[in-house]
């Protein structure tokens, strides 16, 4: 089994979380850290949007400000996601280019890496399926969304696990557009997403989800997760990236 640094469940702000992802990529590019899996939560609760999205098109920014919900633009494509502190665990996996798990074909690489989640969900007693391009569904509803970028000679894939879902809040924050709904022939958007809690009928502690994901990634990806931390340099780089990029309007309101 290949070793992978495992940065266990930590809580950061939205800007910090995105900065840490990029900081790890830069460190991996320098060759100073191993491939890494990290699990994290977002506090305050936050919205992240895909790199090609328009912030104001997708998010009710005034509502977020009034509720002290952070907003951040990711470096990955994909859609707008509400990360509820009480209901979301996010993972990031960072691999060097050429790593056996970093398949050249992007659609295939989503499927490969998402097996970690499918296996993790199975450990919780949930049957789920990877559905192209980048979703994991259970009972036909979305349980996890994932997004990937390739830069700095690495691959970053990150994605959400919906542990619990505050549907009201999600749909107050996200501007859901009629076109997206009508394509799926579903009139009630609440039918399209689900959560671990919904599926199991009970609230599952974050630590239990964490354990299941750890086990799922280990088995599905054939890696040995070695507990580790960010290096001092990674932490410094993350602080700089928060200040210069992820907390700025120039970045977050770029489009």
């Amino acid at each position: 089994m290949d070793d992978m640094r495992f940065i266990d469940l930590q809580t950061h702000t939205a800007h910090q979380n995105m900065a840490i992802d990029e900081s790890i990529m830069l460190a991996l590019e320098r060759g100073s850290v191993p491939p890494t899996l990290r699990l994290y939560r977002w506090k305050p609760s936050a919205v992240s949007i895909g790199t090609f999205q328009g912030m104001r098109q997708e998010v009710d920014v005034d509502f977020c400000r009034s509720k002290k919900i952070d907003v951040v633009r990711r470096i990955t494509g994909g859609g707008a996601v509400y990360h509820d502190y009480e209901g979301d665990i996010t993972y990031s996996i960072i691999l060097p280019k050429g790593h056996p798990l970093a398949l050249d074909d992007i659609p295939s690489s989503y499927e490969r890496l998402c097996q970690g989640l499918v296996m993790g969900f199975q450990e919780l007693g949930i049957e789920s399926q990877f559905v192209p391009i980048n979703d994991i569904l259970a009972g036909g509803k979305k349980l996890s969304g994932n997004a990937q970028t390739r830069r700095h000679e690495c691959l970053l894939q990150h994605g959400t696990v919906l542990v619990d879902l505050d549907v009201q809040m999600m749909f107050s924050i996200l501007k859901v557009h009629p076109e997206k709904i009508s394509d799926k022939l579903v009139t009630d958007v609440k039918q399209r997403v689900t959560s671990v809690r919904d599926l199991l009928g009970t609230r599952v502690p974050m630590e239990q989800v964490r354990d299941a994901l750890k086990s799922g990634f280990t088995k599905a990806l054939g890696v040995n997760l070695v507990p580790g931390k960010l290096t001092a340099r990674e932490r410094l780089t993350a602080v700089r990236l928060v200040r210069q990029k992820y907390s700025t309007d120039a970045w977050n309101f770029l489009r």
Binding site: G50, F52, Q57, I133
Partner: peptide, 27 residues
């Protein structure tokens, strides 16, 4: 989803902004 904001003149693009939740590599 693909969204376009377009500024045009004489049936030519003056400015176009393409947004959405698609993926493009490199971004």
């Amino acid at each position: 989803m693909v969204r376009v904001s377009l500024d045009s003149a004489d049936s030519k693009i003056r400015k176009v902004v393409i947004t959405g939740d698609f993926f493009l590599h490199p971004e």
